[in-house]
Design a protein around this nucleic acid. Structure first.
Length: 193
DNA sequence: CCATAGATTGACT
DNA sequence: GTCAATCTATGGA
């Protein structure tokens, strides 16, 4: 299937986010390729209306790529330990992005199981977990999400489950904003909350 | 300078 | 349920 284009991401993040459900993240270039279907995302805005967004206080060395061109990755280290994978949206300079929160693994289960333990539904059902499983780290920060070793392409199947919407997970500000989108009844989305 | 919170996870009581 | 790991950024003294 074709890779997504920068145009796809040059739209409001709350529109891009649900459209990413069912699209596919591909890890190439590594010794063992991995493919995962996106099943859970969250939008973070940069227009000042979203105090939970890393962009809310303007650019810093860490969030710099959030303010770069759309269609590139913003990867940051969370709690000093884990990595989280975003894709920049909207015109350059606005600071909006979509966080990839969970995948349904389609290919590369062998290497993924070597990198992470647990049941299949526990391998990529969280932003830090999927980065571990797909070998995503700060090297990918600022790189293109439409080509290269890590990129997103359109899904091979239409969404077979309804899309649900909810407040975002793990934040304490702007909890009234329902910018989380996920596939209903998919066992690979984030548990509890 | 120091304290604290954070788009998380896994280990433990 | 609680809590620590470890790094970045912010806000106050």
């Amino acid at each position: 299937m074709p890779a997504l284009t920068a145009d796809f991401f040059a739209r409001p993040a709350v529109e891009v986010a649900p459209d990413l459900l069912g699209c596919v993240l591909q890890r190439a270039g590594a010794r063992e390729p991995r493919v995962g279907r996106i099943v859970e995302v969250e939008a973070y805005l940069g227009d000042g209306s979203d105090p939970a967004s890393h962009a809310h206080s303007g650019p810093t060395p860490r969030n710099r790529s959030m303010f770069g061109p759309p269609g590139r990755f913003y990867v940051y280290r969370s709690m000093g330990i884990h990595h989280c994978l975003n894709i920049v949206c909207q015109p350059q300079g606005e600071g909006a992005a979509v966080l990839i929160r969970a995948l349904e693994p389609l290919r590369g289960l062998a290497i993924i199981r070597r990198l992470r333990s647990g049941r299949e539904s526990d391998l990529t059902n969280g932003p830090g977990k999927l980065c571990q499983a797909f070998g995503v780290d700060l090297r990918f920060d600022g790189r293109s999400a439409t080509r290269g070793e890590l990129f997103v392409c359109t899904g091979t199947t239409a969404p077979e489950r309804p899309i649900r919407r909810s407040p975002r997970i793990g934040i304490s500000k702007a909890t009234e904003l329902r910018y989380r989108f996920f596939e209903a009844d998919n066992p690979h989305v984030t548990p509890h909350r």
